[in-house]
Simulated assay, not measured.
Amino acid sequence: MIRKRVVVTGVVQGVGFRWSARETARRIGVAGFAFNRADGAVELEVEGEPAAIERMLTWLADGPPGSRVTAIDVSDLEPVGDDAFRIIARQ
């Protein structure tokens, strides 16, 4: 298992990005969470098998219809044992 923090920038809020990310994560077997940042980005933490994480990162680089991803910033984290993918609220 590996875990990544991903910050996605571009037109990624107000276009169903987090909900689509949750459905994609569930479909490919990735756990973690997503939330909207005050700066207009979406931040996620994703955890799973390396191949599943790569598929998720590929999806995040494109996003759902209606979004326009300009960049993703990916960093490594220690796995924490998440067993589901959630949308959370951050302040």
Rank of each mutant, 00 (worst) to 15 (best):
E23R: 14
V46R: 06
L44G: 06
A31V: 07
A25H: 00
E45V: 11
T24R: 14
F33D: 01
R27E: 10
E49Y: 03
L44F: 10
A38W: 11
V46M: 14
V46H: 00
V46P: 05
E47D: 03
G32P: 05
L44N: 07
A41S: 15
D39A: 10
A31D: 07
A41T: 14
G29E: 05
R22A: 05
F35G: 10
E47H: 14
E47F: 13
R27D: 13
R26F: 03
A34L: 11
E49R: 14
T24Y: 12
R37K: 15
W19C: 03
A38R: 14
G29W: 05
G29V: 06
A41L: 02
R27P: 05
V42Y: 09
E49M: 11
S20N: 02
V42I: 06
F33R: 10
R37I: 00
V30Q: 05
R27L: 13
A41D: 14
T24P: 01
S20F: 00
F33M: 08
A34N: 03
F33E: 14
E45T: 06
R22C: 00
G40I: 10
A34D: 05
D39L: 14
G29R: 06
E43H: 07
L44V: 04
R37A: 15
V42R: 12
A31H: 06
G32Q: 09
A25M: 04
